[in-house]
Amino acid sequence: MQVFWHQVLSGLATGGIYASIALALVMIYQATHHINFAQGELAMFSTYIAWMMLDAGFPYWAAFFLTLVFSFIAGVLIERIVVRPVENAPVLTVVIVFVGLLVITNSLAGWIFSYTIKSFPSPFPSNAWYASSYLSAHEIGMIAVTFGVLLLVFLFFRFTPLGLAMRGAAQNPVSSRLVGIRVGWMLALGWGLAGTVGAVAGMMAAPIVYLDPNMMSGILLYGFAAALLGGIDNPWGAAAGGFIVGVLENLAGAYVVGTEIKLTVALVLIVGVLVVRPSGLFGRVLVTRV
């Protein structure tokens, strides 16, 4: 039984990473109906930036927050420069541009930082008082950080005028313009926020999966699964989906299929959700008008 609870709790910890990635995906999806295939790679690149600062001797939390600032700016710039020109293009064009972005980010990281695997520190000392046999200090810290991020994002969207304007712009761009909201900037801001949330996920994941240019591909897949399971138009559903998927992954790994074909579990989950319940557990059912 102890093993079981251990699996569940550490599933929640990794689930936090999936939840963050899913939240980032949903933020962009809600505003533009694009799925950002490069979300994982952008998070990976942010993590390298953090590594670079740590390597240069910055204290952890300074590097952490500077990385968030970097990721925010990078997200805004990518939206303004790369995504804007194809905003209303057909699906295939948008998908290809995102794949291009994925490839460029990945190769840029390999080019600058090399493909050798690096270790990345955890800010939570392994002998901290909150560490236990159920959860390591880093896992506890990860859960805390994820919940912190979710709470901040929630408060931002729920209670600030800018958050409200971003929700408005995502829902009804035309009306938003008519009340004076600069919709283009709201989308860019959304990308910035998504980049920031993704960066948190990257920095929390790196101590576990180690740092290399391909570190996020599996995580991104689970992020997709989480977003779809929770409902791709519902940020809180997506976050919940992240935790569910994290626990499912661990239990399936421990009791059903082993850890070798984890990614296939994600694939089955993605296809399964899309086919059986495309709106996810908490999403709205949308009917397309012909």
Binding site: V91, V95, F224, E260, I261, L263, T264, L274
Partner: peptide
């Protein structure tokens, strides 16, 4: 049952999962 974007997503997952399988 999958429209444009979602098919892209599902096939992307297939591509990522292939080597492991």
């Amino acid at each position: 049952r999958l429209e444009g974007l979602y098919l892209a997503l599902a096939t992307f997952a297939l591509a990522v999962a292939t080597p492991q399988l």
